[in-house]
């Protein structure tokens, strides 16, 4: 039966366990993301949200459990970060990390889907199609007028957006977005939500980790609540918000 679910899923996690020096960060996490689905994941600090993303993107090897991609055809636990990225899983980090000594434009340029081999990059020439993609993405994340500036000079919110832009440039099938609105103003938060919805509408699967309940409500998608390394509750935002266990561990604090 599990194989059935896996066969139809974009991303399939089953009974994933991770521990650090005896501390169990994930204890039997299971999660299924359908193709083209957008999912919000919430949970208190230390629930294991970032660790989950580390496992999916190959940064952390799980002690046990299955992590499958594309209808169960690919076992992500066997691949390294670069291979997973090339498969079409893009990730935005909790702490925004852009290439500070590159220009905004170059940040996107580096992320553009292209041959990643050393020889190919050595002789690579920016072509018209790529230039158009860069323009388009910079327009999407509203950084067109700052394209020649060093990324180091961007504000915190702009770095978050640049990172989302880099995600788009990779043309992934699945986007993992870790706390995209941390440190943003309310207006920026709403804009980010709209941006993510637009990305989702273009047919990509998106997993968004967030604390901000207003933002999650704004996304208006199925919500998974993580707690102590496992799924506590799943359903619409109103459903989980009404779940007494969720209220106890998270909302009710």
């Amino acid at each position: 039966m599990t194989t059935d679910i896996a066969a139809n899923a974009q991303l399939y996690l089953d009974d994933v366990r991770v521990s650090f020096d005896g501390f169990k960060a994930l204890r039997g996490l299971s999660l299924t993301i359908e193709p083209g689905e957008m999912r919000a994941i919430i949970g208190p600090n230390g629930a294991g949200k970032t660790t989950m993303m580390d496992v999916i993107t190959g940064k952390t090897r799980p002690d046990s459990g299955e992590v499958l991609f594309e209808g169960g055809s690919v076992d992500l636990t066997r691949l390294d970060e670069a291979a997973i990225a090339e498969l079409g899983i893009g990730r935005k980090f909790q702490k925004p990390t852009v290439f500070e000594s590159h220009t905004v434009e170059d940040n996107v340029y580096l992320a553009l889907k292209a041959d990643r081999g050393p020889l190919a990059t050595l002789f690579h020439r920016l072509n018209a199609e790529e230039a158009r993609r860069i323009d388009e993405i910079l327009a999407t994340v509203k950084l067109g007028d700052r394209r020649h500036e060093l990324a180091a000079n961007l504000s915190h919110g702009q770095k978050q957006w640049l990172e989302i832009g880099m995600l788009l440039a990779q043309e992934p099938k699945l986007l993992l977005v870790d706390e995209p609105v941390a440190g943003m103003t309310d207006a920026e938060t709403m804009e980010t939500a709209a941006l993510l919805r637009r990305i989702h509408d273009s047919g990509k699967s998106v997993v968004v980790v967030e604390h901000d309940m207003a933002f999650v409500r704004e996304l208006g998608v199925k919500v998974t609540v993580l707690h102590e390394g496992g799924v506590l509750s799943e359903g619409s935002i109103d459903h989980v918000a009404a779940d007494p266990r969720v209220i106890e561990v998270y909302l009710g604090r």
């Binding site: 940064k59 970060e81 990225a85 980090f93 500070e100 590159h102 580096l110 990059t121 920016l126």
Partner: peptide, 23 residues
């Protein structure tokens, strides 16, 4: 070259570079 930009990217944020698919 683009390879040079990748090198600088590695210098500044190695793990980020890895996550956008460069070995």
């Amino acid at each position: 070259s683009k390879l040079g930009k990748v090198l600088i990217a590695i210098r500044d944020a190695e793990s980020r570079t890895r996550f956008i698919g460069y070995r």
